[in-house]
Amino acid sequence: MAAKDEGTPDASAKDRLGFLLAYHGSSTETLIRRALATTGLAPRHAMTLIQLAEGPVTQKALIETLEVDPSVLVSLLNDLEGDGLVSRRRDPADRRRHIVEITPEGTARLEKSGTALDTVERELFADLSERDLTALRRILGKLRTAPEDFSCTEA
């Protein structure tokens, strides 16, 4: 075994967890996009419907939950409303606010997308036990991935 130079980095690409996570995230996103394409939804549309399945909410609450810019949400809702998957109405308690609600057709499309996603997840996580999946959820829940979590200072 050759001696390591002092200037040689310790970690190979396979040891860099950030790169591994990015690689697997990119691959997973591709699989999800393909699965959702069979339902006519993009991932952001599906995520919006998932949030709305819990009940009607204000546009402001959706912006906060989905962590998107208001203009992005309006575009998403325009698409979903155009397909008859959501409806928007003024809040009777405050006419300045809009309430967003999933429609019966949106619920049916969400169920179809759930089936497609179940297939992807079964294959993706086939080699993991329930204990592994629980640990993975716990660990992923601890990741600090929001931009405000990082202090980008140079050493």
Rank of each mutant, 00 (worst) to 15 (best):
K112W: 07
T153N: 12
D149A: 07
F19S: 07
G106M: 00
D127K: 10
E123V: 12
P70I: 09
L17C: 08
T48Q: 02
D118C: 08
D79P: 00
E148R: 15
T65H: 11
R95P: 04
R144D: 07
F19Y: 10
V100E: 01
D91M: 04
C152V: 15
G114N: 09
D132V: 04
H45K: 10
M47Y: 09
D94C: 05
A3D: 14
S113L: 05
K142E: 11
A53Y: 07
A22R: 12
D118I: 08
A53V: 08
T115H: 13
A46G: 07
T8L: 05
G84Y: 00
R89V: 04
T48I: 03
L62V: 01
R96Q: 08
G82N: 07
K60G: 09
A61F: 09
P56N: 08
V72L: 12
D10Q: 13
I99F: 00
D127Q: 10
R144Y: 01
R144Q: 11
V57I: 06
G55C: 05
A61T: 15
I63D: 02
D83V: 07
L49Q: 02
T58S: 07
T38A: 15
A22V: 10
P92A: 04
L73F: 01
G84V: 04
I32H: 08
V120S: 03
T134F: 10
M1Y: 00
V72T: 15
L128M: 08
P9Q: 06
D15I: 09
E29T: 12
R44D: 14
T107C: 04
R122Y: 04
R144P: 00
V86A: 06
A126F: 04
T103A: 03
D127I: 07
R34G: 05
S151M: 11
G55V: 05
L66T: 05
M47P: 02
A42N: 13
L41W: 02
V120N: 04
A155D: 12
L73C: 03
R88G: 00
D149W: 03
G114W: 06
P147H: 04
V100C: 04
T153Q: 14
A13L: 15
L85V: 05
E81M: 11
E148A: 15
E154F: 13
L110W: 01
A3C: 09
T119F: 09
I99V: 08
T48V: 01
T65F: 08
Q59I: 01
T38W: 05
E6G: 13
K142Y: 00
L133S: 05
R137A: 14
A22P: 02
G40H: 02
D15K: 05
D15M: 12
I99E: 06
T48Y: 01
E67L: 11
K4G: 04
L110K: 00
F125K: 06
G84P: 03
L49C: 02
L133G: 03
R44P: 04
I32A: 12
E130L: 12
P56R: 14
D10H: 13
